[in-house]
Design a protein around this nucleic acid. Structure first.
Lengths: 200, 200
DNA sequence: CCCACCGCCATACCGGTGGTATGTTCGTGC
DNA sequence: GCACGAACATACCACCGGTATGGCGGTGGG
């Protein structure tokens, strides 16, 4: 049976992750010390090293935390009852919205490739947002909604474009305007590759 | 008149920058110490701190070095005698090729936003490759080659897509194949936004 | 009910690194 | 040829990631 100590342990671990997400978001990976992370979780570095193997492991836990959130929201939309094209468009908006979250932006998109190494980051992304985008594109092709394209590279292009654009939105003073412009351009491009036969 | 000491000074500074580019490319910003950079340039940390204000300044010098190379090659192509559309396509290929250089990829595209901070990186990029891409797109619009689109966000989308794609190429085993696929998809997309009237 | 055990966490300490302060050499201009 | 200062070298400090060790308390067997 689940003991009382297990509750305590999981609680402190969660507190450490939460603290890490916040500090990494605010000051970046290099700018935050393990002592700060531990302090904000009201423990010491000893506790931190009991739950994690090192600073990188703490970062990856924070990374998983943030990515899981976004993945959850995206999955809900992409598996909805609407027609494939609409689901894809809604998912697009949701993803752009997620990129505006400072935590997701800095942790998952900016620092993760540097901290975890590109290969490991790419591997992880396959299980998270990028994987979902790729799946959505594949579904569109299977449903005959868009022309056949190399899925891997095309979704990579789309992913990179969206991340870059979302960062631009997040830092602009008039987020609404820039966001609309980007959505407009992307949708226009997507409509170009849409199968004429499948037109509404 | 230019003294002998000025020659010496510039020489060691150049050696430091060259050393920094190499080590930052191989081991990343966090993974290389100033002592290593100095040692490879056959000086000590004291010399390094005489020429640069700190580690960040060394990185930015290395960043400028790498970016200047790419910018030089791109400018040559984009200001050539060919018609605008061909210049743009050639520039595109050249940029993708540049992204395959490990130094440009890791320093300028991956680590720079993290090390310099996104705002400062963006500012710098406006004067380098991104600025050229934006200019090239503007030229295409001015020449009536492509439909009018919001230049800022569109070039941002394009830039992000290309960087992401190029990284994918660089890490793939069959670079030729992936590279061709990407170029194919991008060109196909570009042809979609091309003004019908300007068709060859 | 008690006690031995061990997971959970705290404390103390080390090596390395970015940064600073100070010393030393040597080319340069008067 | 001499004083001056730029161009470096050396010595040192503070901080941080990581490790080793100590101790407290919940847990389970008798």
């Amino acid at each position: 049976m689940r003991s009382r100590r297990d509750d305590y342990s999981e609680s402190t671990r969660a507190a450490l992750v939460k603290s890490a997400v916040r500090l990494f978001t605010e000051r970046g990976y290099a700018g935050t010390s393990l002592d700060e992370i531990a302090k904000r979780a009201r423990v010491t570095k000893g506790a931190l090293y009991h739950h994690f193997s090192g600073k990188q492991a703490v970062f990856e836990a924070a990374f998983d935390e943030v990515e899981s959130d976004v993945k959850g929201r995206l999955e809900k939309i992409l598996s909805g009852p609407e027609p494939p094209w609409d689901r894809a468009l809604n998912g697009l908006r949701e993803f752009i919205g997620s990129c505006l979250d400072p935590a997701y932006q800095r942790l998952a998109l900016q620092e993760a490739p540097v901290v975890m190494g590109w290969a490991r980051w790419r591997e992880a992304e396959d299980r998270y947002s990028f994987g979902l985008i790729k799946q959505a594109l594949q579904d569109l092709i299977d449903a005959g909604e868009v022309l056949a394209v190399p899925v891997e590279v095309t979704s990579r292009l789309l992913f990179g474009a969206l991340c870059s654009a979302a960062t631009e939105i997040a830092h602009s003073t008039d987020q609404r305007k820039v966001g609309d412009e980007i959505e407009d351009v992307v949708v226009r491009l997507l409509n170009q590759v849409r199968r004429p036969a499948a037109d509404a």
